[in-house]
Nucleic acid binder design. Structure first.
Lengths: 257, 257
DNA sequence: CGAAGCCTTGACTACATTCAACAGGCGTGG
DNA sequence: CCACGCCTGTTGAATGTAGTCAAGGCTTCG
């Protein structure tokens, strides 16, 4: 049985060493029956020497395969994670299976920062992703003793809260077209922040993920995308890429009826 | 011009002193032209001697009149607040005036805990409310030096995040009836936590507030309430009170189609 | 090449919104 | 004191946006 998570003994940026324990992507058609995460000990100390990130002292690096869970809602919250590469979706389920995606996390984002003892949502990889794992106990100790770490995580949490509040406005008060355009603008801003193009975006998640993020159905997402495409505002490119042909118009549409 | 905020020189629990500067409630028909907050210096040190809450050292007590703003989105975020009594609504507006209420805050809840330099939302009093004000600089210093305060505010923030995520599920994936029932159950749980009845609830906010909180229109809220009433699940009482006649059924309806 | 999954498109439905009218409560002022 | 206006909430009818059901195209991958 292929494990969902594999440990790499170096950070992805370091190219000299081979990545140990890397496994093939394993498509998962249902949300059930995913293999449990398996972790091996290790650290990123070599990288730490160059960057002096205090978190490196307690970090373990790992990869998560496409569509595999990092953790599930209700699991005991033993670890906090930071995404290093790839995209993670975080979501909650209703008893009857309806899903609401809380967010898509990319490099630099943190997950599992609950001060609860269980996770409040499920996290799965949209694409194969690399993450850093921090044992919760040790991270909490570090937060207590290190003001720099503390401020960083506080800022992360505050940002998460801001994002959540804006998403509430989107879900509660915006039309399908506005939702889509807001989503595109958010992707664009995140790409720009990471130094990538803000008009040629990578959109690795499927229609179903987008629908569950925006509170729509896949059909409505598809139709709305077609509509934007027909209007000449966007162009769909090869390999889950999308081009914003008229970013200003999209920005306008993102909060005007 | 009547000020929106008035300072009391004691905590509300202390009955011996008259509340200074108290003003009459001032109905406000539009969101515009509300008087700016005015603060006087003061503290709650007498109360602090009995409770040893470290926050008392930097706190100022004040009242906010019904429908008056505590602060507005975009204002310079100089203060953090804790609600002592009454209900506060926190919301964001779209350019065309559509409103999404992020939450209703009651005694013990904090507002303005952004790590931004401006507020991310507007806060208004639903009912006349008493709040404690903490200058942000001093609160931040206290957070840095006092682990107890730190943990408390961290817990508050984490709880806020949890609430926000559950609200996303509600807004994105629930029907009108489920939204209403979830809202009632939330009110019930909050009342129970405060030691009040969990079946006879105070619901001080109007239909318009409920609608903007649940992502509905006032008409839909009204119709859905009528429906629940007709089904014998709730009873509307005098003075903005509501009775949950069948809490179990309401709980069922809160996440089942 | 065939099967599976993802996306798109079409026709119909339904839930919530919009538009409109009206009832009740409350404070103001004649 | 009652009349009036204002605000809030309720109800009805018509509309519309997004959802549902269904079919077909396309890509991917074994």
């Amino acid at each position: 049985m292929a494990p969902a998570l594999a440990i790499a003994d170096t950070a992805p940026a370091a190219s000299s060493a081979t990545l140990g324990g890397m496994v093939q992507a394993r498509r998962q058609t249902a949300n059930i029956s995913a293999p449990p995460p398996s972790w091996a000990s290790g650290n990123a100390s070599r990288w730490a020497m160059h960057t002096s990130d205090p978190l490196d002292a307690i970090a373990t690096v790992a990869t998560v395969d496409r569509d595999c869970p990092l953790f599930r809602e209700g699991d005991h919250a033993d670890n906090v994670f930071e995404v290093m590469s790839g995209t993670i979706r975080v979501f909650k389920l209703l008893p009857d299976g309806r899903r609401q995606i809380i967010g898509f996390l990319e490099a630099g984002d943190f997950l599992g920062l609950s001060f609860n003892d269980t996770y409040l949502y499920t996290a799965e990889a949209v694409t194969t992703a690399a993450v850093r794992r921090f044992p919760r106990r040790r991270l909490e100790a570090l937060i207590d003793e290190n003001p720099v770490v503390r401020r960083r995580l506080l800022a992360v949490t505050a940002n998460e809260l801001l994002t959540a509040q804006e998403q509430m406005v989107l879900l509660g008060r915006k039309s399908a077209k506005e939702k889509l355009c807001t989503f595109l603008m958010t992707l664009s801003r995140k790409a720009a922040k990471r130094g990538l193009s803000d008009t040629r975006l990578s959109m690795p998640m499927g229609r179903s993920d987008i629908a569950d993020y925006l509170g729509l159905t896949i059909e409505t997402v598809s139709r709305t995308i077609t509509c934007l495409k027909t209007a000449g505002l966007i162009r769909l490119l090869e390999g889950h890429k999308i081009e914003l042909a008229d970013p200003d118009a999209i920005s306008e549409l993102s909060d005007a009826a």
